[in-house]
């Protein structure tokens, strides 16, 4: 479903070119669960941003379902974000002025889903994540793990094909981290394609496949 070939990302300064990513080739199939690992500054987040259409590569090809997605118009990008992919973050990035319910509902509103359908979809997820009782709480009133659950719920409520997770367990204690990883695993088993960036060897193992980056170059790409 997703194909990267010869992706470079570099910054030019006066006298030299600094590469963040160099000649990255990568293919992700539908139903895959990919973990990207590597030390700080190895380019993992940049790679995820490029995949998530948040950043442009300096050179190379990137296509989704054999369609090039470089140089897309803002509108088309927004469409991809609304319908094709969901994001979760290390810092959750929930909207603080909104309740749990509203946080999950918002992407649907942006998408233009009708009110009755929204209610059903949000109720489903609340149910699934056992958060019905917490639906009227604000993010600050939840634990980190619960906030991340809301983050996941918000990311998947629009039924995306691809879930991008940037260090989803980075701020969590290990028990909560495991709970999140289990959730991701279940989602993957249900057919969701997932790409996560992580520091944590143990959590990387949840992926079906691990890519190891070093200085912007893929050193290893192996099944776990």
């Amino acid at each position: 479903m997703l194909h990267l070939s010869n992706i470079d990302k570099y910054y030019d300064s006066k006298f030299q070119r600094t590469f963040v990513l160099k000649a990255v080739n990568m293919e992700v199939k539908e139903g895959d669960f990919l973990s990207i690992m590597g030390p700080s500054g190895s380019g993992k987040s940049t790679l995820l941003n490029i995949i998530g259409l948040l950043d442009q590569p300096s050179a190379g090809e990137y296509s989704l379902y054999d369609k090039s997605v470089l140089d897309l118009k803002e509108k088309v990008k927004v469409d991809y974000h609304r319908n094709f992919m969901g994001f979760i973050f290390q810092a959750y990035h929930l909207i603080e002025d909104m309740t749990v319910y509203e946080n999950i509902e918002t992407p649907l509103i942006y998408k233009g889903v009708k009110s009755r359908d929204r209610q059903a979809m949000v109720a489903d997820l609340l149910d699934r994540f056992n958060m019905v009782a917490k639906k009227d709480l604000f993010p600050q009133q939840l634990s980190g793990g619960q906030q991340q659950l809301v983050g996941i719920a918000r990311a998947i409520v629009g039924k995306p094909k691809l879930l991008l997770a940037d260090e989803p367990t980075g701020n969590l204690q290990s028990v909560q981290g495991e709970m999140i990883m289990e959730t991701l695993k279940t989602l993957n088993q249900e057919g969701m394609t997932i790409i996560q960036v992580t520091h944590n060897e143990k959590f990387a193992e949840y992926g079906k496949r691990i890519i190891r980056l070093e200085d912007g170059i893929i050193r290893k790409d192996e099944k776990s």
Partner: peptide, 16 residues
């Protein structure tokens, strides 16, 4: 701005 970015990321257009 983080909040604004998040909103954009989950599909808010300028209009929203």
């Amino acid at each position: 701005s983080i909040q604004i970015r998040t909103r954009k990321l989950i599909g808010a257009s300028d209009f929203h």
